[in-house]
Simulated scan of single mutants.
Amino acid sequence: MAGVRSKHTTPELAVRKLAHKLGYRFRLHRRDLPGSPDLVFPKHRVVVQVNGCFWHGHDGCRHAATPSSNVEFWRKKIDANRARDARTTTELTGMGWTVLIVWGCEIRDEVALVSRLRAAMPS
């Protein structure tokens, strides 16, 4: 697990490239915000979290299957990640931020991702 990156992942880079192409300007991993969100759009008060399906337990996704070995460890780990994500989202919304969660499996559908980004940004 030491080799698993938490910043600048392939799905995150894809979202950043798309957001930039759409003309949105953002900051990366602002440590003054809860959870250090992947992308922060200060002008729009929107944060984007790019979550890996396996690590964050994406419901109904084939990439989120629990490994068959050491099941209890993985279940606890993923449940803790989900609880932390929920806590962070609650804190950010309480501070007036809109939180958009983008899953790793959603990156392939660029059209849907564009519409989700545009819908999250106030006019």
Rank of each mutant, 00 (worst) to 15 (best):
A112S: 12
V47H: 00
H58K: 04
A83L: 11
V50S: 03
D109E: 10
G35E: 01
R31Q: 15
V40N: 00
T90S: 15
S36Q: 14
S69A: 14
D79P: 07
P37C: 03
L39N: 05
M95V: 04
A80I: 05
G52Q: 00
L92Q: 02
K76P: 08
R116N: 07
S69W: 10
D109A: 11
G60L: 04
R108Q: 14
M95H: 11
V46W: 04
H58Q: 08
H44W: 14
I101D: 05
P42T: 07
D38E: 09
E91M: 07
H63K: 13
G60D: 09
L33I: 10
V102K: 02
I107H: 03
G104P: 06
I101W: 09
N70T: 06
F54D: 06
L22H: 01
S36L: 06
W103D: 01
S36P: 09
D109H: 08
W55Y: 00
C61Q: 04
P34S: 08
T98R: 11
R75H: 12
I101V: 14
T90E: 15
N81S: 07
T88Q: 10
V99D: 04
G57R: 13
R27N: 12
V46S: 06
T93G: 06
P37D: 05
V50A: 09
R84V: 06
C105L: 00
E110F: 06
D38V: 08
R30V: 06
H44I: 03
Q49R: 14
W74M: 00
L28D: 03
W97K: 00
W97V: 01
A65C: 14
E91F: 03
K43E: 13
A65V: 15
R87P: 01
G52Y: 01
N51M: 11
R27T: 05
G23V: 07
A83E: 13
A119M: 13
Q49G: 11
K76R: 15
W103L: 05
R108T: 14
